[in-house]
Amino acid sequence: MISKLELLKSSPYFSGLGSDELEAISRFVFEKSYNNRAIIVLEGETAEALYFVASGVVKVFKTSPDGKEQTLAIIRPQETFNEVPIFDGDVNPASVQAMTEVLLYGIRSRDMGNILHTYQLVAINVIKIMAGRLRHLLALVEDLSFRHVIGRVAKILLEHAVDGTSAGPRLTQRDMAAMAGTAREVVSRSLKNLEKDGFIKIDRQRIIIKDREALSNIVSPLFETKVTDG
């Protein structure tokens, strides 16, 4: 497991700082561990700290009022989460759940404020990191809002489907995302929606097209016009 000091050294937040400065900052770092599936951060609640994943993996997600979940990011070891509420002082904009047993290192909000005031380089690093986060989220917003990704996913399914008498190509959700020019999370959501509508059925490693005509209708330009106009 990575030590607090090693984690600070490898973090882009503290890039460019010397050993003495990292040592000083490490005194602010606390540890917290969570069981698999535990909710670490709840959307709408007051933020406590900036977290670094020391071991394990967590997902950042939002939940709609009708219970639909949209994964925003997967956070792996040495990556961070909870930046937004720590720096703007508002509530958590999303929830975070452990996908494994997780060990986190955290820096409390007020301590992070002190660090920013003391080390100008950290403030510059924060701006770079936040710009990267913004770029990622803008791409996700674009996909979710403006593009008819579901139509493109439907097209991919139809183009790669076989009738069951011969072996066809096998596609991962990552493959489909690359083909559709979108994020894997968006493909996952599109597949769930198509299944909910009864057009496909996901049966372990098989995606069964149950209503070919309905999928074709989603793909058709007429559908895209309706969506654009509506």
Partner: peptide, 25 residues
């Protein structure tokens, strides 16, 4: 395997994947 694809989701290097066969009913 239940084909939940969680392993594929968490893999940062793309070393593990869960491909689907797409068939028409």
């Amino acid at each position: 395997c239940d084909w939940c694809t969680q392993c594929e989701i968490v893999c940062a290097t793309g070393a593990i994947c869960c491909p689907f066969e797409i068939v028409i009913e």
